[in-house]
Amino acid sequence: MKIVRIILAIIVLALSAYQLITENFELMPYSMLFLGAMILVTGLSELQKDRKGFWGYMSIVISLFIFFVYIPDILMN
């Protein structure tokens, strides 16, 4: 899980840096998709560590919200 989280973080960072440098925001839905996946993996790893606290569940809820908001935008392009 840790390797997947690091890979997703690198992808999100690279996409965000590219968008800021070039001022081309056409890749924004994809960076938000990878951000949602990273938050989902973070929440699942928190729940897997038996720390069933507030932030594990909140991370999953936030990632699901990101998916529901940005998946229609990806499908329309």
Rank of each mutant, 00 (worst) to 15 (best):
L44Y: 15
I39K: 01
M28A: 09
E46P: 00
F25K: 06
I21P: 04
I11P: 10
Y57K: 03
S16V: 15
M28G: 00
E26Y: 15
G36Y: 03
L44M: 15
A14G: 11
S31E: 08
M28S: 09
L40V: 11
N24Q: 12
M28F: 15
G53Y: 10
A17K: 03
M38R: 00
L33Q: 01
M38V: 00
A14V: 15
A14I: 15
G56C: 05
E23W: 09
S31L: 11
L47K: 11
I39L: 13
S16K: 02
M38E: 08
K52G: 05
L35H: 08
S63I: 02
V61L: 10
A17T: 14
L13W: 13
F54N: 03
M58F: 14
A37P: 00
G43D: 03
L44G: 01
G43Y: 11
L40N: 14
M38Q: 10
P29A: 01
L64A: 05
S59C: 10
I60N: 01
V41W: 12
S59M: 07
E26L: 14
G43M: 10
L64H: 02
V12S: 05
Y18C: 02
V41A: 15
L27C: 06
L27A: 14
L15W: 12
D50A: 11
N24M: 07
D50S: 12
S45D: 14
K52F: 10
E46F: 15
Y57E: 01
F25V: 07
P29D: 00
Q48G: 11
A17S: 11
